[in-house]
Amino acid sequence: MLLSAGRPSAHRVDEYLQAARLDIYPDRVEIVLDLTPGVAVAREVVQALDRDLNGAIADNEARAFAEDVLRAIAVDVDGVRVRVALVESMSPTIDTLLRGDGAVRIRAAAPIPPLAEGLHHLRFRNEYRGDAGVYLANALMPATDRVVVAAQHRNVDQRDLVVDYNLRGTPATRVRRGLPVGVACGLVLALQVWWRRRPRERA
């Protein structure tokens, strides 16, 4: 015999899950945002998506929706606002959304102006649907060794994320920086060899 000890509540209801993952490169940040409305808010989201009310979400409607979402998202690098541009928007069917488990995926990117090597701060703020939003925001492990994440700071609901990261030089600049030290070491070594092998006066 099977008996439940708890209340069976299947899925997200009145929350609007917004999960952001940030991929930081030296010259840009790529953002993937998954929006999953619960059943109680799904109809509003569908209305925002299906603008011509024909019961299907066309590509242009998905893009227009995504542009609206991105207007509520701000990215700053070292305190300077950068422009977040839509790359792609993918929507499940209306039925899937209305069941409360479909996710709209938005891909966006923001260019990062040339920065000096060293510590920088990237701030991501998501103010979209603050009335129902439940937020996740995380930096991915960088795909390049030129970016090293030092720390992440969030407010309690993860609407606001600051990523401290170190920007390292390119391999070429690292070689160039190491060149004087390498040359100096080489000279010292050569001097030592010469000193040991120099012809000595006989006593």
Binding site: A19, D34, L136, D157, Q158
Partner: peptide
């Protein structure tokens, strides 16, 4: 010091 409402690396 923040709330985590769901899996970060779930399906998909």
């Amino acid at each position: 010091n923040y709330r985590v409402a769901d899996l970060v690396l779930g399906p998909g």
